[in-house]
Amino acid sequence: MSFSPELHHWLILSTILFSIGIYGVLTRRNAVGVLMSVELLLNSAAMNFLIFNHYASKPFIDGAIMALFIIAVAAAEAVIAMALFVAIFRSRKTVDVTQINTLKG
């Protein structure tokens, strides 16, 4: 086993980042914090695309295009999320997700 970065090292790295993102999504109280955690998830997914592109289909470029798309979707998502936060904050004076429980049955 070598320390020089191989496929597995990369995958473990991206999975660690993804897990941290999950933790953030599940625990952050501030909705903006949740959004940032989601950005972590998206980032690590995009990274995965590039990793596999690099190691499994080097002559092609589709993984990179997917990464581009993810970045674009993340941008759209961030815009919508920010608008939602502003709207929620205006009506409820908070963006603490534990206070927003109108789904309670």
Partner: peptide
């Protein structure tokens, strides 16, 4: 079972994950 319905999106997300 309705006590599972906390209204907290994060709880639901936990179940989903």
């Amino acid at each position: 079972f309705s006590r599972l319905q906390t209204g907290q999106a994060q709880t639901y997300t936990t179940w989903m994950v």
